[in-house]
Write a protein that binds this DNA or RNA. Structure first.
Lengths: 339, 339
DNA sequence: AACGAAAATCGAAACGTTTCTATCAACAGA
DNA sequence: TCTGTTGATAGAAACGTTTCGATTTTCGTT
C-alpha cells in the first residue's frame, strides 16, 4: 500500500508538505496542491487511519453500549447513531451488556485503550463507577434510558413518572380501583422512577397501595408471567395490571389467557413501551410509547455535537421525553361497573 | 498514561524485554518476569492497542455489515457475533447498508483502511465488486443470507428453495391450486432462489404458473400490500398467497383484511421468516422459519476460526440451513373444497 | 537592486509498539 | 583454560502519520 512517503516522492515534495496539502489545503500553494493530489491519485494513496490515531491520540470510532440489543429501544439508538456517525466520518463500535462474557468494566477499558472519541451508553449501577475513567480519558459521554442524577452528563430518557401516571389515570378513569403494577429489575433508575410514578398517581387518586399488588417482574416476559399468575390467583384478583415494559406485558397477557381471564372484560392490561410489530398485534395493547426514534436522534445529535468541538464547554443537557399514549383494546371498564 | 518505556524504566530492563515478557512470557527469565509484572502494575500500564495495530498491520476489530439492522435476522447475527467476538478479544464495528448515506463502497474502504481483521457481511450485487479489495487486503470474509456463487467465501444461508417448496407443497396438500407468490427485491440471490423454489414446486405438482400471480413486493410491507391488493382484486382471485418474507406477509394480511377476505377461510397466507414477536401474534402465521440463531452462531464460529490462524488454508465452507416449518392458523382448505 | 515580511516548504522528532539483530553471560564439553 | 552453544537481555529500526521549528522562496517596497 502506498504511504505518504510514496506520494511525496512522486510529487517531488517533502512528506510534511503532503500532509499539509491533504489536511489543510490552504497552507499550500495551489500549484503544489495539484501536484500532490495527482500523485496521491496515481499511487492510489489512502491515509492510514491507525497511524493518524497514534499520532493524534484519538481514533475515528464512536461507541454504543446497549443493555440488550434484542430490545426494540436499543435498536433505534443503534440505527440512528450508526447513520449519523458514519455521515460524519466515524465508525461505530457496538457492545452489548447482556452478553455472557460481557463484563462492562472490560468493555470500557478496551474502548478507552482504543481511544474512542465518544460513547453513548445505557448505564446501570455498575456503570457509575466507570464513568470517571471515561472522563479522565477525555471521552465525551451521552447517557440514555437510565439517568445518573447529578453526574453531569447529557441524558436522554423518558418521562417515566408521567408515563406510568398516564396509564394509572387512564385505568382510574375507566373505573378501576384495584390496580396492580409489575415493576422492572430492582436497582435501575427507570425502575425506581416508574414505580414512583405509580405511587404518586395512586396517591393523587386517593387510592391506597396494597403491597401485594406492587411486584417485580424483572423486565422479562417470564417475570411478567409469574407475577401475573400470582396477582390473578389471589382471592380477590385485581381488575387491571400495568406492566413496566412490553416484555412483561406479554407475560401478563399470556397468564391472563391461560387462566381464562378475558381481556379487557375481566382484566385490563397496559404497559410502557411499544412492541416491534405493535401495529399488527391483536388485540392492540394500550400503552405509553417512548418516542424512541426522536430520543435516539437527540442523543446522537448531542454526542456528535460534542465531538465536533471537544473542548467547547457545553453545559450538560438533559431531556425527559413525554410518552405518547396509545389507546388499545386491552383496557376497558371493569366487569363490576358494566351492565 | 504509562507507556512501555515507563515500565521498562521502573523494572530496570529494556523496552524490548518488557514487550517480550508481556507477550511471550516464556522468552524471559522468571525473575525479570516478576519484576516487569510488578512494574506494570505499579505504573498502571495498559498497552496502547493503536501502536500495536500500527506495528502489526492489524487492528483488533471485527466488522459486521448488515443489510438492515431493523430486521430480526440481522439482529441475531449481531448479538451472536458481538458476544463471541468480544470473548476472543475483538471489538465489533457495525455498519448498516440501509442508512441514507451508507455507501457500501465507502464503508468497506474505511474498514480496510482501519485494518479490520475480519468481516461478516450480507452481500448484495454491489458487494461483489468490493470483495476482491478485501481479499487483497487479506481480510477473511464470511457471507450470510445472500450467496455469491463460486466466489470462494464461507457462506451461511437458508435452503431457500426448500423453504418455498415446503410452503407450496403445504398449500397444495390443502387443496389449493391457484397459488400466488410475492417475491422480494429483484436481483438479490435469495430472491432468485426463492422464486426458483416456487417454480420448481409448482412444476412438480403439475401446476402451471400464471404470470399474473408471480409478482414482486420488494421485501417491504408496503410492497406486499400493493401486490396483494392487485392479486385479490382480480376477477378470479387466488386462494393462497406465499410471501417471500415476513414484512410482505404483514402487508398481505392487511390487504386481505381491508378487502374483507377472511383468513384462512377465503384466503390462505404463509411466508418465509418468523416475526420478532411471532409467538404472540394472532392469528399465528404459517411460516418456514430460518433457524437464525444457529445460522448466526455458525457464521461467527467460522469467521473467528479463520482469524485464529489467518494463514491456515481452510477450504471455503458453505451451509444451507433447512427451514423449520411452523404451521399456523393462516392456512387452511380453500373455500371451494370445504363442505 | 536590495531588503524585509510573508508565504511556502522542509527536516526531524514524536506517537507506542514489535521484532530483528547484536551483545553478553553462563555453562558444558574438550 | 578455551571454545562453542544456549538463553537472556539490549539496542535500534520500523510501522505511517502530524506537527514544530527552521529554512527557503516569493514578492511588494524602497
Amino acid at each position: 500500500m502506498a504511504t505518504i512517503r510514496d506520494v511525496a516522492k512522486v510529487a517531488g515534495v517533502s512528506v510534511s508538505t503532503v500532509s499539509l496539502a491533504l489536511n489543510q489545503k490552504e497552507r499550500v500553494s495551489s500549484k503544489t496542491f495539484r501536484k500532490i493530489i495527482e500523485a496521491a491519485e496515481s499511487t492510489g494513496y489512502v491515509a492510514n487511519p491507525i497511524a493518524k490515531s497514534l499520532r493524534k491520540g484519538r481514533s475515528p470510532f464512536v461507541s454504543l453500549i446497549v443493555s440488550d440489543i434484542r430490545n426494540y429501544f436499543s435498536q433505534m439508538f443503534l440505527a440512528e447513531f450508526e447513520h449519523r456517525a458514519f455521515e460524519k466520518g466515524y465508525l461505530l463500535t457496538l457492545s452489548d451488556k447482556s452478553g455472557l462474557a460481557s463484563d462492562e468494566t472490560a468493555v470500557i477499558r478496551q474502548l478507552i485503550a482504543q481511544r474512542v472519541t465518544g460513547v453513548m451508553i445505557s448505564p446501570t449501577q455498575q456503570t457509575r463507577a466507570l464513568l470517571p475513567q471515561l472522563d479522565q480519558a477525555g471521552v465525551p459521554v451521552v447517557l440514555y434510558d437510565h439517568q445518573i442524577p447529578d453526574a453531569g452528563y447529557d441524558f436522554v430518557g423518558l418521562d417515566n413518572r408521567l408515563a406510568v401516571g398516564i396509564l394509572t389515570r387512564h385505568l382510574f378513569g375507566l373505573g378501576h380501583r384495584r390496580i396492580a403494577y409489575i415493576g422492572g429489575e430492582p436497582g435501575l433508575w427507570t425502575t425506581n422512577e416508574r414505580e414512583l410514578g405509580f405511587r404518586k398517581a395512586m396517591d393523587s387518586q386517593g387510592l391506597p397501595i396494597d403491597p401485594d399488588t406492587l411486584v417485580s417482574g424483572n423486565y422479562t416476559r417470564d417475570g411478567g408471567h409469574r407475577a401475573s399468575m400470582k396477582l390473578l390467583c389471589d382471592a380477590r384478583p385485581v381488575t387491571a395490571i400495568i406492566a413496566a415494559n412490553n416484555e412483561m406485558m406479554i407475560g401478563t397477557l399470556q397468564a391472563a389467557q391461560e387462566l381464562g381471564f378475558r381481556c379487557p372484560d375481566d382484566l385490563s392490561i397496559c404497559c410502557i413501551d411499544e412492541a416491534p410489530w405493535g401495529d399488527v398485534l391483536r388485540p392492540r395493547v394500550t400503552h405509553a410509547a417512548q418516542p424512541a426514534r426522536e430520543m435516539a436522534i437527540r442523543a446522537a445529535t448531542w454526542l456528535l455535537e460534542r465531538l465536533e468541538d471537544p473542548n467547547a464547554a457545553i453545559e450538560p443537557r438533559s431531556e425527559a421525553f413525554a410518552p405518547t399514549f396509545v389507546p388499545g383494546e386491552t383496557t376497558g371498564r371493569p366487569a363490576a361497573q358494566r351492565g
